[in-house]
Design a binder for these strands. Structure first.
Lengths: 258, 258
DNA sequence: ACCTGAACACCGTTCAAGT
DNA sequence: ACCTGAACACCGTTCAAGT
C-alpha cells in the first residue's frame, strides 16, 4: 500500500516519489500509532518502500523529522479557529483552544513545538497572536512581550497537560492514571502536604481542557489590567532572588493578599 | 521493588555502595556535562565503577532516571525561594522565579518535570503553590484549578523558554540562535507575516527571564480579577470550537478590544 | 539483597555504489 | 538529483551467574 500523498500530476515523476511532505505525513501516522519510540527510520522506510538512507535526502535527521511532524499537526488548529471578528480577546481565546485541541489529538506532538518559532505553522501562530494583540490597543512596546507570553502559555501548558498521556503504554488511560495519583496523594502526610491531601477529589475529576482554559483566562484577564502597569516591566528583571522591591513601593502587579 | 531508600549506617556497606541517590546524583552531573543523549547507562556505570546491570536494581529504566534527575534539580528552587511573609502573591512570584532559575541551570531538566506531580519535589512545589493560593482569600472551590494553572505555567513555560538551549551542540549559544531566527523573520513576506516582520528587533534583544516574568505577572494579575468572575468557569468548557457564549453575554473575562 | 558483564535486539546515521 | 542497502557505532535492557 503505497502511501503516496498527492503529487501534482504535471510531470512524469514516479507516482510514489519521495518528498518531505510525504515523509512527514507518514511519520505523523506512525507517531500517532506507535508513539515517538515507535517511529523508526527503518519502519518508516519500509512503509514508503525505500531504504532508510533515502529519507536522509529529504530530512536532516530524526529530530528534524519529529519537529516537522509536530509543526504539521499544529497546522490543524487554523482550520478550526474562526477568523470572525468577535473582538481580539475572543479570537485569541478561540485560537488558543484550537491549538490545544489540535495537539491533544496527537499527544506526542505538544512537547516538540518549540519557541521561538522557526517552522511554518509556529511562525503563522505567533504572527496571528501578535496581530490580535496589536488590535487590543495595548501599548506597542509591549506587543512582543505579551504575544510571546501568550504563545509560550499555549504551547508550554498544552505540552504539560498532554504529555503525560503520550507514553503509549498505559492503555488504561488518563483516568486510571489520575486515580492512581490521587491515591498517592491520599497517602501523604497532611502535616507535610496540607494542600494536596485535601485536594485529591479535585484531581480525580478535573477536566484537562478546563484546566487549560482556566489558566488561559487568567492570562487574558491579566491583559486587561496590564495597560496601567507599564512601569512594572522595569524593576523586577534584575532581582535575582525574586524578592519584591526592597522599598516596598506600590506593586500593582502582584495579587494583594492583605 | 528495589527501593534503596536511606541506608542505615549500621552495617559495613562499602563506602561507595550504590543507591538511588548516588545514581541520580551522578546522572545529574552527566546530564549537565553532556546532555540527555550523553547520559548512557554504560557511561554512568563506568563512572560509578559498576556494570550497567547494577543500575537497574535501583532504577526502573532511563525514563525514570531522567525524571528523578529532573525532580532533583527542581528541589534547588526551595533553597532560594524565601518563606518570608510578603503576602501570598509576592511569595508565589518569588517561588515561580526560583523554579525558573533552578531549571535554567540545568537546561535538560525543564521538559522532564511533568504534571500531575508524583515525584517528591514536584509534590512539594504544588503543595506550596496551593497553600499560597489558599491564603489569597479566593473561593475555596477554585483553589485546585488556580494552583494547577500556576503550576502548569511555571513548569510548562520554563520548559518552553529553556528547552531550545538544551541541544548541547550550538556552543555559539542563545544569542547566535536568536540572531539567526531574527534573520529568518526578516526574510518573511510582510504581507503574510505582518507582525513578525516588524518585531525582529524585539526578538534579538529580549531577555528570557523577563519573558517568563511577563507572563507570570499577567497570570497573577488575572488572579486579582478572578474573584468576581466565578461564573466564567461554567460555560466555556463545552464549547468545542472555543467560540464565546452564543448569547453574547457579558464577558468580563476577555480583554476588550474596543 | 545486591552486583557483574556478556548477550540480545535493536537504533540513528553514513556512504559507496547505483540510476 | 535521487535512491539503495549494507555497514558502523552505538544504544537500553535482560538475565544467568556470582557474592
Amino acid at each position: 500500500m503505497p502511501r503516496t500523498r498527492g503529487r501534482a500530476p504535471d510531470g512524469k515523476g514516479r507516482a510514489d516519489a519521495l518528498s518531505q511532505e510525504v515523509i512527514v505525513g507518514a511519520a505523523v501516522a506512525l507517531l500517532d500509532e506507535r508513539g515517538e519510540r515507535g517511529l523508526t527510520f527503518r519502519l518508516l522506510a519500509k512503509q514508503l518502500n525505500t531504504g532508510p538512507g533515502a529519507l536522509y535526502w529529504h530530512v536532516t535527521n530524526k529530530d528534524e523529522l519529529v519537529a516537522l511532524a509536530a509543526d504539521h499537526v499544529l497546522g490543524d488548529a487554523f482550520a478550526t479557529a474562526p477568523r470572525a471578528g468577535e473582538g481580539a480577546g475572543a479570537e485569541l481565546r478561540a485560537l488558543a483552544i484550537a491549538v490545544f485541541d489540535a495537539l491533544d489529538r496527537h499527544p506526542w506532538a505538544a512537547s516538540h513545538v518549540t519557541a521561538p518559532a522557526t517552522l511554518a505553522n509556529a511562525l503563522r501562530l505567533l504572527d496571528r497572536i501578535g496581530t490580535l494583540v496589536a488590535r487590543t490597543g495595548l501599548p506597542a512596546e509591549r506587543h512582543f512581550a505579551l504575544s510571546t507570553a501568550i504563545s509560550y502559555y499555549i504551547t508550554g501548558v498544552s505540552a504539560q497537560i498532554i504529555a503525560p498521556r503520550a507514553p503509549v503504554g498505559a492503555t488504561a488511560g488518563r483516568d486510571a492514571f489520575l486515580a492512581q495519583t490521587a491515591e498517592r496523594w491520599e497517602e501523604l502526610d497532611p502535616a507535610d502536604y496540607p494542600f494536596l491531601t485535601r485536594t485529591t477529589a479535585d484531581l480525580r475529576d478535573h477536566d484537562d481542557r478546563d484546566q487549560f482554559t482556566t489558566g488561559l483566562d487568567l492570562l487574558l484577564n491579566g491583559l486587561n489590567t496590564t495597560t496601567a502597569g507599564l512601569d512594572q516591566r522595569i524593576s523586577p528583571g534584575r532581582t535575582v532572588t525574586g524578592r519584591t522591591a526592597p522599598g516596598g513601593s506600590p506593586q500593582a502587579s502582584h495579587p494583594s493578599s492583605r
